[in-house]
Write a protein that binds this DNA or RNA. Structure first.
Lengths: 201, 201
DNA sequence: ATTTGTGAACAGTTTCACAGCG
DNA sequence: CGCTGTGAAACTGTTCACAAAT
């Protein structure tokens, strides 16, 4: 089966989430259009790209479709281990984030360059000074990092994380991170998100 | 001048931020390629789309380029007023977000459906019960909302916000929001951001 | 020599239209 | 009859290649 395109994947991620709490047994492409705002045609193409045919010309079976989505988007199966880097107030809030329960993502540690913070703060996950980054990332096979440092540290940390083998960064700092090809970054700081709203209006 | 395409705008937003703390007087398209990861060619096309010619075949003048970007992306000029809806822990952290200082965005109020919270919590901005949403959004001409409610409330609130005339939502909940055409949503919850990383890898 | 700016070629996506199915 | 699945057409965005500028 050929690879899904990036625009297609982005839509399918939303669809996957939509189906998480969809009450009906089946769903049609016009219905998805109403809920997601994409055209029914593009949704059908996207789903057809999944390879499974769970639409018997009278709507898709929600359960089957969900499973196909999870597998195609690598959201089932092996757990993805994450760390939080930067125990700022935002970092602390994200540390025990109930959103991740029952997901394929798990936060396994927190880091801060300020040893005070790692010693004083309490969490269900171990907190380490950033000097331990390499050891732990490699030992625990961490794939993703959630970056919540001060701005001044952000690029430095990103570089270190990439050097340790991190494959993706959720960037809650407003900094533009320079990373090599193949490393994914999602910029989700408040200010950058607001700028995106403005520009795309 | 013809409208910038959406992909182009997304790149230009990053470029604008990059230039915020760029130390040199000029910058070349190959240099931007190194820092942002987009091809020099596409960057040149993007910039040429701005209409201003501030590259005298030996790199772009940073100051001029920045100004052109801010104006094209509507980041200068009129202030964009925002509210925070949902004073969860995350909402509280975002309330006094220093990132917004010196930007064209300003948070002017916080809301929660739980009156206890709006009364007990302290902030530099006024906090109101959600019954006041319509009054204040219209009186203050609010354009954007930052959604940090519980999941159970998210879609309901989104609908109310849109009905009050909100033009864009930064969605920190993992819910997929159904909004009419013309209303922008940026999904920036931790779990959705992580899923995006996985799918796009 | 290196860089911008741009028309032309190319690649990728979306929309259209409709055959086939329930 | 409304729905899916899918080639073909239309559209949009990106890369290429090079003239003009310094």
């Amino acid at each position: 089966m050929k690879e899904l395109s990036i625009p297609s994947k982005k839509r399918l991620i939303l669809l996957e989430r939509l189906l998480c709490d969809y009450p009906e047994k089946t769903i049609t492409s016009p219905k998805i259009q109403d809920l997601l705002g994409y055209s029914a045609a593009v949704i059908r193409k996207d789903i057809s790209g999944l390879g499974v045919n769970c639409g018997a010309s009278n709507g898709y079976k929600v359960a089957e479709l969900r499973q196909a989505l999870e597998s195609a988007l690598k959201l089932s199966g092996d757990e993805h281990k994450c760390i939080i880097v930067g125990l700022t107030r935002l970092g602390q809030v994200l540390l025990d984030n109930p959103q991740l329960e029952n997901s394929s993502f798990r936060i396994v540690a927190g880091f801060d360059s300020n040893v005070n913070r790692t010693e004083v703060l309490k969490s269900v996950f171990p907190l380490h000074p950033t000097t331990m980054l390499e050891t732990i990332i490699k030992a625990e096979k961490i794939t993703y990092a959630i970056l919540t440092t001060e701005e001044s540290e952000a690029q430095d940390m990103a570089q270190k994380l990439v050097a340790c083998g991190i494959k993706g960064i959720v960037n809650y700092t407003p900094c533009v991170l320079t990373v090599p090809q193949g490393v994914q970054v999602q910029n989700v700081s408040l200010i950058m998100s607001l700028k995106a709203l403005t520009a795309l209006t």
